Amino acid sequence: MLIPQTKNIGLPLMNLMRFKGLPILQQLHIEEQLLRSSSENWCIVNDGTNDPTIVMGVSGKPAELLEIESVLDDQVPVIRRFTGGGTVIVDHGTVFVTFICNKEAVPNLQPYPRPIMSWSSSLYSKVFQGIGDFHLRENDYVFGNHKFGGNAQSITKNRWIHHTSFLWDFNVQNMSYLKHPKRAPAYRSARSHLDFICSLKDYMPRSTFMDKTVEATETQFSLRPIQLEAIRTCSEAEFCPSSRFLTNEELEAAAVALQS
């Protein structure tokens, strides 16, 4: 058996898993298992997911965030994930990058949302160096004042997770399933979805973005490639993920409550 080689031996070890088209619910289950059951650092890169799927934060309310009638009519799946953050619709045009770390993995990083966001933006500034006008604006990654990356986090006693959905490209029709949220970032300035977001494809090749993200991560961690089979050490009975699909009955109840 070949043992994966690592680089930058003096840096903290981070396991790297790369997927193409992994269903987003399966990705979320893997992430939650690694956050709660592992004691190692992880980076997960998933190049797109399968069918268009709406993903809501753990406290998101469908009636406030979704055009529920359209979602039900078109049978668009809706997931409530285990982390906070906003609502996105993801598909093959979305690239996902996740960091799961022990609290001491990044020197001098305070395990709170804003410091973690600041750290992640400094890492991505290496990825986008000389490309576009990249900034962290409130909790979003933007070029200028157009969003292309949305973030979500969860922080436990000893570990944290930071995951990002990057809009490589998007289907205009899909955006119609999302309402303008009541709690929108100030820089959005009441713009519609289509005026607010932009596509990463207009700035760099897709494979280049993912490769540069791995390279930027290697400046802070010693990366070790890992296959999915290597983490399947816990049976389903030992780990019960909280990310799940919302049922039609739940969405219908939210629609009725909205009408009343």
Rank of each mutant, 00 (worst) to 15 (best):
I3L: 09
T6E: 10
N8H: 11
M14I: 14
M14D: 02
M14S: 10
L28Q: 05
H29S: 02
E32I: 00
Q33I: 06
L34M: 11
R36A: 09
R36H: 12
S39K: 12
N41A: 13
C43E: 14
I44K: 10
I44V: 12
V45W: 08
G48I: 05
G48V: 07
P52Y: 05
V55Y: 07
S59I: 02
K61M: 04
P62W: 13
L66V: 12
D73I: 12
Q75N: 13
Q75A: 11
Q75G: 04
R80E: 05
R80Y: 01
G84H: 06
G85P: 04
V88I: 12
D91I: 10
H92T: 11
I100T: 09
C101H: 15
N102E: 15
Q110T: 15
P113G: 09
S118Y: 00
L123K: 08
Y124V: 01
Q129A: 07
G130A: 04
I131D: 07
N139R: 07
Y141A: 03
F143A: 01
G144R: 01
N145F: 01
G150R: 08
A152M: 00
I155M: 08
T156S: 09
R159K: 14
R159Q: 13
I161M: 10
I161F: 07
H163Y: 14
H163D: 05
T164P: 01
T164M: 09
S165D: 10
L167T: 03
L167G: 02
L167V: 06
V172E: 12
N174W: 15
N174T: 12
M175T: 12
H180Y: 10
R183E: 15
P185T: 12
P185W: 15
F196S: 01
I197C: 07
S199P: 01
K201M: 10
K201H: 13
M210L: 11
D211M: 00
E215P: 00
S222A: 13
P225M: 02
T233G: 15
C234V: 13
F239H: 14
F239G: 08
R244G: 01
L246K: 03
E249V: 06
E249Q: 09
L251M: 01
L251Y: 03
L251A: 03
L251W: 02
E252T: 06
V256Q: 14
S260H: 08
